[in-house]
Each structure stands twice: as C-alpha cells, then as structure tokens.
C-alpha cells in the first residue's frame, strides 16, 4: 500500500509540474522568441536547411579551427569573421526562404526557411 501511495504521489507531483510548465509557457507564449542553433563544423552548416517560425532568432556557432563569415546571398545579413566558438545571430521576422553561404568559403551553403 505504501508503495502504491508513493507512486500515486509521485505521479501527482509530475502532473502538477507539467501543468506549471505548460502554464508558464502559455503565459509567455507571444513574447518568447525561439532560438535555433546552427553548427558550423568541418566546412558545413548543420543543419543545412533549417525551418523556423517567423520571428525566430537563428544563431550560428563556428566550431572550426578557421574563421567563417555568414552572409545571405541577397545581402540581407552578413556577420563579421567568426573565429572558433564565435557566434552570430540574426532574427528572421518575415516568412520566406533565405539562402546564405560562407563568403570566404563559398562552397559552404545553407538555407533558412521561415514560415
């Protein structure tokens, strides 16, 4: 009996926790800006294509031993040279497809799809 009670208590606590989490998410829902990471590693963007909702901030992190420059093909955004472990972020407010590449290693290409 004791065991069953403990389990029931534990389940109850879990439900409460979940409810709180869901509540807090709802409360901050509109203001939250989902942040999405793109890893730049071994001369590739991963993921190569990233789909995000509008108003998302995408952050690139350079994991290579050489610098990279994140640049959109239409000139909308362009980072400074990112050394190892440097970040660059850009907020995508409008839906659309945004192609980008590394302006010093142009074989490196990627795409952000904003919905």
């Amino acid at each position: 009996m004791l065991n069953t009670r403990t389990v029931l208590f534990a389940l109850g606590s879990l439900a409460l926790t979940l409810a709180l989490v869901l509540h807090s998410r709802t409360a901050t829902g509109q203001a939250a800006q989902p942040t999405t990471e793109i890893k730049v590693d071994n001369f590739t963007f991963s993921p190569e294509t990233l789909t995000v909702p509008a108003n998302s901030t995408v952050t690139w992190t350079n994991k290579d031993d050489v610098p990279h420059v994140i640049a959109s093909t239409d000139g909308l955004f362009r980072s400074k040279g990112l050394d190892t472990d440097d970040h660059y972020s850009f907020k995508f407010t409008k839906p659309g497809t945004y192609n980008y590449f590394c302006s010093i290693h142009p074989k490196m290409t990627g795409k952000i799809v904003v919905q």
């Binding site: 093909t73 192609n99 980008y100 590449f101 302006s103 010093i104 142009p106 074989k107 290409t109």
Partner: peptide, 10 residues
C-alpha cells in the same frame, strides 16, 4: 581571387 565570391562557387 578572394573577393566577391559567389555562393556555391570557387
């Protein structure tokens, strides 16, 4: 030959 590089190019 390192300036104005085009996406996907050399």
């Amino acid at each position: 030959n390192v300036m104005n590089l085009k996406a996907g190019g050399l």
